[in-house]
């Protein structure tokens, strides 16, 4: 390797590459450090809790999306599933009067079922998951509107409020729940045969089939788990807000995909892990938080965070090209 030619820019680009987990973590630390320098309030515990809470919801969807992306699939209806399940949960609790816990569990089951429907359609009809789930997002999002007529359902029982706004040792409940599922997801993908099958399907589907790997079952399983996680995020959001907003999940579509790519899971599948994807989500979360702290006009915020995603994945691609050549 020609070490003499490696200039500082090269090293920076390589480190930002995010191809390996350590470089994603390094980038996160650099950004956290810069943020702390740029804003005095950044490192305050109040602000940290804000970041953690925001990360919790996007993070749960990111876990789901990254597992699908390892398979080489995408589900653009996860946000719609989350929103629909939140609304159904609100209806079950407020209008039907079911005990909150039963409503909660029922919604998780509905989410898993919707995920399974996506998975079944993808495998049985051999559909492209990106296109299918754009359509399914319309179906689930439309059902949401049919049920709510666009009006929020208020009066959610306070007994489940703890799940949304409670804290343990100062850490928000949704964040802790996200961590628990992150550990579960990492265990599943990295330590079990099922997880290895996921990587096999993502890196070479025909070879996986020829080796007797149950490709379709793996796909349907991961879609189901992703639907379950989407419903969980939706219900936690309802618990947090104390009302079921029909708009829950609207912003959960693109950020988790960007987070996964930044965290080392390419859309082509086969490599990366949910852990890397969560660090990717954290990078996006910190940057979005910093934009607010710096008082950037709200009208600019969307544009700036979009541009940062583009820059991050461009750096990733550039660094990969450097690695190839070196």
């Amino acid at each position: 390797m020609d070490t003499q030619r490696r200039n500082p820019l090269h090293s920076l680009v390589a480190a930002a590459g995010g191809n390996s987990l350590s470089s994603v973590i390094a980038v996160l630390f650099v950004i956290v450090g810069l943020s702390a320098l740029m804003s005095d309030n950044f490192l305050s515990s109040y602000n940290m809790v804000i970041i953690a809470r925001a990360l919790a919801f996007i993070g749960i969807i990111t876990i789901a999306q990254s597992m699908l992306m390892i398979l080489g699939e995408l589900d653009l209806s996860l946000g719609a599933i989350g929103g629909f399940c939140g609304v159904v949960g609100g209806i079950l609790m407020v209008r039907v009067g079911l005990p909150p816990w039963i409503a909660f569990i029922a919604c998780l089951a509905i989410g898993a079922a919707f995920g399974a429907i996506n998975g079944l359609l993808v495998t049985l009809l051999n559909l492209h998951s990106l296109v299918l789930t754009i359509g399914m997002a319309g179906v689930y999002g439309g059902l949401n509107l049919v049920l709510t007529k666009g009006v929020a359902i208020t009066g959610i029982p306070t007994s489940i409020g703890f799940l949304g706004s409670g804290t343990i040792f100062g850490l928000p409940m949704p964040f802790l729940i996200m961590l628990a599922f992150l550990i579960l997801a990492c265990f599943l993908t990295l330590k079990t045969p099922f997880g290895r099958y996921m990587y096999a399907v993502g890196s070479n589907t025909p070879a996986a089939r020829m080796l007797g790997i149950p490709v379709d079952k793996v796909r349907i399983g991961v879609f189901t788990f992703a639907g379950f996680l989407a419903a969980l995020a939706g219900m936690l959001m309802v618990a947090r807000l104390g009302s079921a907003q029909p708009s829950i999940g609207d912003s959960w579509v693109l950020a988790p995909i960007a987070a996964s790519v930044i965290g080392g899971v390419p859309t082509t599948g086969g490599i990366g892990s949910p852990l890397g994807a969560i660090f990717g989500a954290a990078i996006i979360g910190v940057i979005e938080n910093l934009i607010v702290l710096l008082g950037v006009s709200p009208y600019w915020q969307t544009m700036v965070s979009g541009a940062i995603v583009v820059i991050a994945i461009s750096l990733d691609s550039i660094s990969r090209r450097y690695f190839k050549r070196a």
């Binding site: 990587y199 890196s203 070879a207 020829m210 080796l211 007797g212 149950p214 086969g270």
Partner: peptide, 26 residues
């Protein structure tokens, strides 16, 4: 059902290593 076939003891090594054999990136 490839899973059945493999479990019954049939193994197939394709002529196309790249597309039917290895798991690249792993």
């Amino acid at each position: 059902d490839t899973r059945y076939a493999v479990r019954q003891g049939l193994a197939y090594l394709s002529e196309d290593r790249k597309f039917h054999g290895i798991f690249p990136g792993q």
